[in-house]
Design a protein around this nucleic acid. Sequence first.
DNA 1: TTGTAGGCGTTATCAC
DNA 2: GTGATAACGCCTACAA
Lengths: 335, 335
Amino acid sequence: MAATIKDIVAMTGLSLGTVSKYLNGYPVKEKNKALIEETIERLDFNVNLFARGLRTKESKSIGFIVPSLELTFSTKIVAVIERELAEHGYTVIICVVTGDSKADQAKLQNLAYQRVDGLLVIPPPNNLLLQQWLERMVKSIPIIVLDRLFKNSTLKHFVLVDNATAAFKATELLIEAGHHDIGIILGDTGGFTTDERLKGYLQALSHYNIPIKEEYQVYGKYRKAEGYKACEQLLSLTNRPTAIFVTNYDMTLGILECLNEHDVKVFDDISLIGFDLDEISKVINPNLTIVTQPVNEVGYYTAQAILKSLKDDAVEQEIKVFECSIQEGASIKEI
Amino acid sequence: MAATIKDIVAMTGLSLGTVSKYLNGYPVKEKNKALIEETIERLDFNVNLFARGLRTKESKSIGFIVPSLELTFSTKIVAVIERELAEHGYTVIICVVTGDSKADQAKLQNLAYQRVDGLLVIPPPNNLLLQQWLERMVKSIPIIVLDRLFKNSTLKHFVLVDNATAAFKATELLIEAGHHDIGIILGDTGGFTTDERLKGYLQALSHYNIPIKEEYQVYGKYRKAEGYKACEQLLSLTNRPTAIFVTNYDMTLGILECLNEHDVKVFDDISLIGFDLDEISKVINPNLTIVTQPVNEVGYYTAQAILKSLKDDAVEQEIKVFECSIQEGASIKEI
DNA sequence: TTGTAGGCGTTATCAC
DNA sequence: GTGATAACGCCTACAA
């Protein structure tokens, strides 16, 4: 049905080799070039990537494994990366791997079948299966892991955000405003970013000689609904914290909803510092003070990095770390 | 490098045909089956979709063309669809086509090269190029268009949301609360959903004999920043509206930010009805009354529909319409 | 149930 | 610059 090079050959009288050369940017007589181009147009010819891939072993596609498309962080990164890669003729195949799903195995296999040229991964918290699969894949294609560091791994390329420092600074901000009873709402127990953020929080407390209270550390799995519950837990404490540090976007929504429903006023009744709420920090009244991750920079860097790996297949170890910044709002009360 | 069927043949002593049969679910002697499975495991064999596709002309991938990954509506649909399709062994290739970009042409060509088995499309407002391309593609693969209706087209399958009725009901709600001066913040001039929503708004006004004022209709391109500007425009009117209907998520954020900065209180100073703000309607104080689109249902239906089209290639005309609902908050004041 | 052989549409290696 | 020809890895008749 669809036109092939042979059809072009038949129409132009040129040889298969010549047409193929044209298609791949090799020099062809000006006259023949025009003839081929016209014929391609007429036939609505599209190169068959099955056939080309069979020969060249390149799919011109890269796989992007994310833990969820419902989490704002992943989605934003996908947006940036799609843009950059498309510009270079690469197509992005999305693959959601949650880490706790029976479907993961099948999904990864599909991705392997597709013969992507490279892989970008934001690993889910629970990811043994995925990690093993990656160790196998990295033998044949470049892989960049985002937002998580694997120790003792054959994987060499990581892109991180300095979550510990960010959490330290956020906590410090609350401490400097006079808060000693600071709750933190974390992601998944044992998750990499969760641990880093907790570390920063604890370091800040230690640094300022503030006693650490276990009951102030609650987990919300980075989800809005879980964040809501975690918040209720903090509110129900007899020694309720005077300030809360929420460690991602989606949970912050849950926290705000919870405070709203319990008629606890941000600033007046409780101080708050959020995470990555760029779009809505000013929608909220009072404006929220937030830690912001440099999502665009991370995405851009990653896209460029994978493109580079696709060319040179130099396999140097590389760990790139980005710093967060704090955007001041009016949600922290001096006490 | 990577193992092929031939390698399996060499290891097992079976023939190529037998192995291939196993791979495709045809009956094979139990003993041979076990042997093959073991060998596949040992060799880390993955079917080569280039080769298979070359024969079968199927890529097991479907393309999803969206106007942006920064718009909440698209992103949510992508999430649902990826989940459903993956379950059936299909892979999703994301392709952002903005409609005003020089890059569109190249991106569509790439998608054509990839030989996707089917296409899902949320067209951007400005989409002549895309539409022409789709008319060509639909000759060979099934295509479902979301959130927009093409008239006089060879495209036959559309999934819509009844935006006109939704806008009518939203406007009616404001009218019933006593509002006559109702501003509407729309998407892209001439966009399909924009026109539908405007239509519903105008119908409601007419139905209740409320004079239509052009200056109350402003456009915000469905973007937060543009929504902000549009809101400022409404606020600056001498006969400032007493209520505003904002027609998508992202713009609603902009409007809220704008009202916040101009110290105009929702409910007290101005009534508001938003769109698709599910996650944050309760984050805002007062809770926002919103129109909600059945995103999950739309996504689920679409995924099932494309899977069906992939099997039967019956090409019946089909236009599926989903209704919106209204979720009551406390952002509309009786006057 | 198993084995054999041809071909899917390209690219790459030659010789011309 | 151009033209023939052999792969690439798999599926699918067809024959056994």
